[in-house]
Design a protein around this nucleic acid. Structure first.
Lengths: 251, 251
DNA sequence: GGCGGTCTGTGACTTCGGTTCCAGACTCAC
DNA sequence: GTGAGTCTGGAACCGAAGTCACAGACCGCC
């Protein structure tokens, strides 16, 4: 029996990891709006001949995933290649101990590589994807995906680019986890996440693959140096330069 | 000034990391043999029409990289997509401290993804690739690569599969490094590398992203339990089951 | 055989990160 | 307001991994 530690679920939000499956929308409820959104997020779709684009819009499935819903997990074989129109998805690995580490985020204008991989019938990924904010996805059915890959160069480029980027990111992450100390990684995370971070210490720990206590401890040490201000569910950067310096190397 | 610690270079082998560039062969010195080798390593090339295959063989460049030569590094922009015919390549990240971690190996019958990525003009990878054993590569020029991707489905499948696999591997590695203790990882490495491992403790440490002393220490603890026999440049497994058990979880 | 370079063993010490445990503060719902 | 659930602070402790320093063994070569 695997023991999962109790973990806070956010006093405002809905329960975390709720097994809420993405719910299909009534098909094509507003084709014009969808089309506009799609082109805004994936401008190169404009190069697709109009008739093909129409077909894409009708054949593809519009999905909405509420925040905290699980998009895919160790097992679930995902049919279709989803493009993220809005929201944000975190792709993470979690250990049996309950600890987690963020591998990367999927942002609007990006596609879900993992699905692409298992779409090609390869190893089902053991990572899990969770909607961080309410997400809107357009899922391209396998046949159409193949077709686009075959005939539509920008799409092929896009998918390739995604793979390349992800791989590079994750390789970078390996180096970080293997060699960089946690204070630096935390500092980097804080700087990256902008002047005000509204998040739980636990969530920050989950991004780094560490535990709440350590993150709290480090944050306090940053606070004592006057680098940040700490409040409940909020970290405010007061001295981003020093943090960046620490993140970079010597500080 | 970055301080690189002194590191052994192997008293028999040639100096490590020697900046030996892959040397182009005289073109098409034995077309029949090359063709056979290519088909042996990449059987699906048999589905390529004969004339196209001939063209591939003439246009592609045959490269040989002696063991320890650097195939690519942080900077070098590689033109062409190399297929590995023989030998073995280690792709690793190294920290300024001199520590290293193996990301993955490229084996015969596989292609060099990194090159594929930077071939598409994306981020140049900061990982480095070193021939572990004398390597023979066939480098497909960019134009031909594009063409194959466009028109030859098995090739597209191959490249995709590679990306998917690598990504999965590296994601797995992140989890390992973040959550798994070194003794387990070392045990796993030993089991994986077969009944007799002829390697330096330093090299093993480099695979794991650790340091020599720790690996030595762990190996000795394995030895004291009767799991392995230790000799200079050699580790012999005596009790693979126990090692595997440790690697798996409880041991 | 002697020498320089390499590989391994080892002990003492440090440090970082993790664990455990608990108290206090805050928020929301009732 | 009260109580349940959540978030943060903080101390004591532990253990794994890394660092440092050095010795001895081994190898190849002159």
């Amino acid at each position: 029996m695997i023991q999962i530690k109790h973990r806070g679920v956010g006093y405002t939000g809905r329960p975390e990891n709720a097994p809420v499956a993405p719910v299909p929308e009534p098909p094509a409820h507003d084709d014009r709006a969808l089309r506009r959104l799609l082109l805004a997020r994936f401008p190169w779709f404009a190069q697709l001949p109009a008739t093909r684009l129409e077909r894409l819009l009708t054949e593809a499935q519009l999905l909405r995933a509420p925040a905290s819903s699980i998009l895919f997990d160790a097992n679930q074989p995902c049919r279709g290649f989803p493009l993220l129109l809005d929201g944000s998805i975190r792709v993470a690995k979690s250990a049996p101990s309950g600890r987690e580490i963020l591998l990367y985020r999927v942002d609007p204008g990006q596609g879900c590589i993992l699905s692409g991989g298992c779409l090609l019938g390869h190893s089902d990924y053991s990572a899990s994807g969770i909607a961080e904010q309410d997400a809107t996805l357009l899922s391209i059915p396998p046949a159409l995906f193949e077709e686009l890959m075959l005939e539509f160069e920008p799409f092929r480029r896009f998918v390739f680019g995604m793979y390349g980027e992800r791989l590079a990111e994750v390789m970078e992450l390996v180096e970080e986890v293997a060699f960089r100390k946690l204070d630096r990684r935390l500092a980097q995370l804080l700087v990256h996440r902008g002047p005000v971070i509204e998040d739980t210490h636990q969530k920050l720990a989950d991004e780094l693959g560490s535990v709440r206590e350590i993150v709290s401890r480090l944050l306090r040490s940053f606070e004592s140096r006057g680098w940040v201000k700490l409040e409940r569910e909020r970290v405010t950067l007061l001295d981003p330069k020093s943090l960046a310096a620490l993140a970079a190397g010597q500080g």
